[in-house]
Design a protein around this nucleic acid. Structure first.
Lengths: 221, 221
DNA sequence: TAAATTTATTTGGTGTACCAAATTTTTTAT
DNA sequence: ATAAAAAATTTGGTACACCAAATAAATTTA
């Protein structure tokens, strides 16, 4: 019963990878701490360990980067997470917005072999139930070319591909509005004065805050 | 990312349950430590915590017992372990002697709901790939009425139901002899002078030490 | 029963992963 | 440029789960 699983390492790398993919700004200790919901002191300590392990690279300007090794591990973790999500939805009949917590546990099972078997068992899916791409064995990700709803044009129709925020509160919220990956919607109107949106989903018009709209990723449809 | 999984608690309870089922003798700290492969000081400390949590009961004569609560949790863990083993063999195409380590990890996934879904997905199996019984939702176990090969009569035919030692070395060893749950064998002869056995398996006769034979559980067939 | 052995327990440590509060450094705004 | 704000870092803790070595208690054996 060897317990040197570096369980949290995977969480750090995964979160870091996600932050870095939103190529906005540089990721510093504060950003990472917030994303992980942990104390900056804790994160600093851990990031230094990850640096010792050659998983991250600490640049003099205080920004945190992934090494190739770290990126590889992050992608593997994301792969595991998303494949388990597919499993839970397709085989265990969970709904797409119920699987996050369980996948969060399952992603830490140590066996690349099992994940590969799971992958082929599920028919080598390219996207998870949230519409997010699943890295293949070599870490390659299929691109979806999605844009946030905030970047869309009023009057046009779109399909939801995935969500930029996969937190439970957001998913629950969207569930009530019947907004989920795969659903079609029409951007009725952008309200300039508060940045909110009117969106038509399943014949009904709903209101979305700027914050919510920013986290809904869509493709023209 | 709440980390209060009491990951090891399940290992202690499971091991304790197994030791107690072999109703030989009483289970003391030494026995449990040996079974877990841990230092007695560690085990004593943990057993006291389990006592605080009302999982085990410490009797004045130093023997360790499970409370109802502890037994329930132990059975749930065993249930999880064995169902995941079935999954790995039936769905992931692992061989029966390759799944132990992985199931050891998977058994700690926290969700009774998932296990129940897994159970019905697998067709509510009563035995795992090693021939060990799988506790149902309520912790009930089907009895197999198996006896060790050492208690068998020469000249008669038997079917292997399960193995009393599920350690990898033993499983590997048996694999080489094609002995596994479900296989039929004939007890050719007991050799009195060293307690060893001659057994016919798949038309070939192999030799088994008393130790090996003691760990092979069979039913008349 | 006394000595030897085994078992139980205590004591002082370890590594991992976390935190709050204080301090230092850096950045931003005035 | 300086004061204020923000970010980074240090310091001193915590809990969990483990260990080795010393000691105490119980059991066995001679």
């Amino acid at each position: 019963m060897a317990h040197f699983s570096h369980h949290s390492e995977e969480n750090y790398l995964k979160t870091l990878f996600k932050l870095l993919s939103r190529q906005d700004i540089k990721v510093n200790n504060t950003a990472l701490s917030k994303a992980l919901g942990l104390n900056p002191a804790t994160v600093l300590e851990m990031v230094r360990k990850l640096s010792d392990r050659k998983m991250v690279q600490l640049v003099p300007d205080k920004s945190i980067h992934l090494t190739e090794k770290g990126k590889k591990k992050a992608l593997l973790t994301i792969r595991k997470h998303r494949l388990w999500e597919v499993f839970l939805v397709e085989k265990m009949n969970y709904k797409w917005n119920e699987v996050h917590e369980l996948a969060e546990q399952l992603e830490h099972i140590e066996s690349t072999d099992l994940v590969d078997r799971l992958d082929s068992y599920l028919g080598n899916p390219s996207f998870d139930p949230h519409g997010d791409p699943i890295p293949d064995k070599n870490g390659k990700i299929k691109n979806k070319l999605s844009i946030p709803l905030t970047a869309c044009a009023a009057g046009k129709k779109y399909m939801v591909t995935n969500l930029a925020d996969t937190g439970d509160p957001f998913l629950q919220f969207l569930g009530k509005l019947n907004i989920m990956p795969g659903i079609k919607l029409k951007l009725v109107e952008k309200h300039e004065y508060d940045g909110s949106f009117s969106v038509e989903v399943l014949k009904k018009t709903v209101q979305l805050s700027e914050k919510a709209a920013r986290n809904i990723m869509v493709q023209p449809a």
